[in-house]
């Protein structure tokens, strides 16, 4: 009897530990790992009300609702990519704090390379136009210079 009870108690321990480890955030109960996933997703999404904050940081009502939606989907096992798509489908690519590479953003992503190319061009043109170094003095010229500098 005692042994049975002990075994039962032992069975409960991991369950209890798990129950304590669950966290509640924005009305959704989830495991720390799921919460971590949700935070990673939320910190990559722009809050549309205060546009320089992420959904994770913002205290706006809409951001809170979106955090709830992200967590619900995480608990349901929806892949990250699909959750991102859910947001982009509704709010456009502006919702992504890191804009994706697309025809719309090609110029944005190419700009450092364009700047580098322009820099090289300017440098190259400047070098090409610079006067050629003067030829070294001949012996006669050197003698005259020494004479003059005496």
């Amino acid at each position: 009897m005692k042994i049975k009870r002990l075994l039962f108690a032992l069975l409960l321990v991991p369950g209890l530990a798990l129950a304590q480890a669950m966290v509640q955030r924005d009305g959704v109960i989830l495991t720390p790992a799921q919460e971590h996933r949700a935070e990673t997703i939320g910190s990559q999404l722009r809050c549309l009300v205060c546009q320089n904050e992420s959904i994770e940081e913002s205290s706006a009502g809409l951001a809170k609702q979106l955090r709830t939606i992200i967590r619900q989907q995480v608990v349901q096992g929806v892949p990250d990519k699909q959750i991102m798509q859910y947001m982009v489908h509704r709010y456009g690519i502006f919702v992504l704090l890191k804009p994706p590479v697309s025809p719309l953003t090609w110029l944005l992503y190419a700009s450092p390379f364009l700047a580098l190319i322009i820099g090289f061009l300017v440098y190259w043109l400047g070098r090409r136009n610079r006067a050629k170094p003067v030829a070294p003095l001949t012996e006669a010229e050197q003698a005259r210079l020494d004479e003059l500098l005496k």
Binding site: L48, V49, G61, L62, Q65, L66, I69, R90, Y91, G92
Partner: peptide, 12 residues
Amino acid sequence: SGLTAINWGVYG
């Protein structure tokens, strides 16, 4: 609930 607004992409 504001959930239809989210589906429309309403942000304010």
